[in-house]
Design a protein around this nucleic acid. Structure first.
Lengths: 196, 196
DNA sequence: GTCTATATCGCGATAGAC
DNA sequence: GTCTATCGCGATATAGAC
């Protein structure tokens, strides 16, 4: 990126596309929708991008790279399993706050996109994420900070789903911060809602 | 329904359509997809149904009616709040087991469909469901069976999302029954995963 | 109840002018 | 960098034969 200003228009268009993909779904968003929102004609988009698919690819790749780099930082620390688990949860809610469109696209369209070679990396990232969670949960049980009678696989799916699905209702800049949501969620997850 | 046999073909076609809508999304499923899966040509579908939209409408309406009738039974009982809460959770996982396609369609396409007058009842049902959950949670806090320091609205969203999103990975007839999943989920929700 | 044939529309993408 | 103009395709839906 020798000249960041030169890529401004390109990034602007990607942001517009991401918002539309998130709102209407990738397949239901037309290149004309994107062009309309950008105030240009559909043909003009092809000056910037090869195809609609390329736009999506660029959006998802840069987000995933950023997210997994952040995960790697947590895992490289020498915190205990429970702390790492909390940090990964917080990181995820932060990602929803900072990149709601990217998360929504991933939530809504990843299953469909995974079938294409071009988006095979989405499945790889999902596997990688699963490995991270299962590792932390196993470590938590082994070191005695988590209950021994839980089904690790099931807990993983519940955590993953509940965290990411929050993108459907969480609004950046709203009353609740991502940190508030993470606090409440970790309380429920770790201690439950039943009165002691 | 004077002659249930006469409607068999119709219901067969609706089941085929529901499975495809669930798998690929409503908008991405073509009437030709449905006709192909049924072994007929696309034009022939219009002998049975007005439109693709009518098919979806019929699928969603009958499912929602059945589900909310079941909720009403639980609410009409004189169980305490915690028991009712558990029963509603179990009922929901049972719905995923028995009507996975309908649940998946609702999960994936309701936000988009809600914008159409024809599907306005989806939003009404969502409100009704919210009312049920909030009522039970409030009652639970008031009667001391739930922690007083939880954010009722947030807990509602977590429960709703986690329960229904399970349709993405739960497989009817698989190793885990819907009852197993409900057991584990209620344990996590009520007691948490942290070691005491 | 399904077929053949087709109308009409909107899609992603392209070529070349400005 | 955006425009005009358009291609080829596949979408929903329809009309009438069998």
């Amino acid at each position: 990126m020798l000249d960041p200003v030169a890529s401004t228009r390109r990034e602007e268009l990607l942001a517009i596309a991401a918002a539309l993909f998130a709102e209407k779904g990738y397949r239901s968003t037309t290149v004309r929708d994107i062009a309309d929102a950008a105030g240009i004609l559909s043909g003009s988009l092809y000056h910037h991008f090869d195809s609609k698919e390329s736009m999506l690819d660029e959006i998802l790749r840069s987000f995933q790279d950023e997210l997994f780099a952040a995960y790697a930082d947590v895992l490289a620390s020498d915190d205990d399993a429970r702390t790492k688990l909390e940090r990964v949860v917080r990181l995820s809610f932060q990602a929803i706050d900072q990149h709601p469109a990217e998360v929504a696209i991933f939530q809504n369209d990843a299953a469909y996109l995974g079938a294409f070679d071009r988006f095979a990396y989405l499945a790889e990232r999902a596997d990688q994420s699963r490995g991270i969670w299962l590792g932390l949960l196993r470590e938590g049980v082994a070191t005695g900070v988590l209950r021994p009678d839980i089904d690790i696989d099931l807990v993983h799916r519940f955590i993953r789903d509940t965290v990411w699905v929050a993108v459907r209702w969480y609004r950046p800049g709203g009353e609740l911060t991502h940190s508030d949501v993470a606090d409440q969620y970790l309380t429920i997850l770790l201690e439950g809602i039943a009165h002691a």
